[in-house]
């Protein structure tokens, strides 16, 4: 008996929240737009019913017709775009303006990047036999980011009631837009930890984001 016959609605048919789609089996898994209650699968959003076949399971999904505001919610693990507001010795205070999956937020959300979440000053590819216990391997916050910089970060946790917590401890995360302190022009990344002003040639320390194709 195939999974399609277990569903109470035809594939690509229109369902609304609360519609019982079918029974919950080991081979039938609730996907986006659905929920499981009391051994049954229910639609939780209005849209078209579809099945995505995975290895041994069928993912039941309900696809809404257009992009909703509810998709713009910040969740743990999301990559976000934020602007650095102020910097202290222990952390950087930033404002999240957009998420990778949901687009621009209606209001900027406050967040912090702690010093220990910026990452190591030793690049991932760098291997050495020398004892690095005495060496400085964590960033100074002011060397990694500065006020006015735009950063790409990942949501580490939802934090407290005040602000989210972000991390930059990945090669593809870090500063991707910064203005030079003297020239005021947009700087270009020279290496993974340095940005250079094309007008004056002055180098500034930054934790640069690895370019993503």
């Amino acid at each position: 008996m195939n999974n399609n016959s277990r569903l109470r609605y035809e594939i690509d048919s229109f369902v609304v929240p609360g519609d019982r789609l079918g029974s919950f089996f080991k081979t039938t898994v609730p996907g986006p737009g659905t929920s499981a209650r009391k051994g049954h699968l229910y639609a939780s959003t209005a849209g078209r019913l579809s099945i995505q076949q995975q290895e041994e399971q069928s993912l039941i999904t309900v696809t809404p017709p257009h992009d909703f505001a509810s998709r713009r919610v910040i969740t743990v693990g999301q990559i976000v775009l934020a602007k650095v507001d102020r910097v202290s010795w222990t952390q950087a205070h930033v404002s999240i303006f957009a998420t990778e999956t949901g687009g621009t937020l209606q209001y900027p959300a406050e967040a912090i990047v702690r010093r220990e979440d910026i990452g190591s000053t030793v690049p991932v590819t760098h291997t050495t036999n020398t004892n690095t216990a005495n060496n400085k391997t964590s960033w100074q916050v002011i060397e990694a980011v500065r006020p006015g910089d735009w950063i790409v970060a990942r949501v580490l946790s939802l934090g407290d009631t005040q602000r989210y917590m972000l991390t930059l401890a990945e090669p593809q995360l870090g500063v991707w837009y910064a203005l030079s302190a003297k020239g005021g022009t947009v700087m270009q990344p020279k290496s993974w930890n340095t940005m250079v002003c094309p007008k004056t040639g002055v180098e500034e320390s930054r934790k640069c984001a690895k370019p993503r194709c």
Partner: peptide, 11 residues
Amino acid sequence: LMDAGIEMKTL
């Protein structure tokens, strides 16, 4: 709520 795309258990 449905127009806004909020997921609901039931109507």
